[in-house]
Amino acid sequence: MKYIRYRKEGTIHYGALEGDTITRLDGNYIEGPVQKLSTGDSLGEVEVLAPTEPRQLLAIGLNYALHAEEQGKPLPEEPMMFMLSPTAVIGQNAGITLPTEDHRIDYEAELAVVIGKEAKDVTKEEALSYVLGYTCGNDISDRDLQKKDIQYTRAKSYATFKPLGPVIETELDPSHTQIKLTLNGEVKQDSNTSDLIHNVEELLAEVTKVMTLQPGDVLMTGTPSGVGPLSPGDELEIEIEGIGKLRNYVNK
Rank of each mutant, 00 (worst) to 15 (best):
I105K: 01
V122D: 02
A119T: 06
T52R: 00
A94C: 09
M80Q: 06
L62T: 06
S129R: 12
T52K: 00
A59D: 03
A127N: 09
T52Y: 01
M83W: 11
A88P: 04
I60L: 11
G61P: 05
I90T: 13
N63H: 09
E78R: 11
Y107Q: 03
T52E: 02
E101K: 14
E78I: 07
T123G: 12
S129G: 08
T123E: 13
E108M: 05
A65M: 09
G91M: 04
E118I: 06
I90C: 09
V89A: 04
P74Q: 10
V89I: 15
E108Y: 08
G95R: 14
K73T: 14
E125T: 14
T123S: 15
H67W: 10
G133D: 08
T123H: 11
E108L: 03
K120V: 10
P54W: 05
I60A: 03
S141G: 00
D106V: 12
L111G: 04
Q92H: 15
I96Y: 05
P99D: 13
I96S: 05
M81Q: 06
S141P: 03
A94H: 12
Y130W: 08
N138L: 12
M80E: 13
E118T: 14
P76C: 07
G91S: 07
V131W: 02
R104Q: 15
I105N: 01
M81N: 02
L98T: 10
A68L: 08
K117F: 11
Y64N: 03
N93E: 13
P54C: 06
I140K: 00
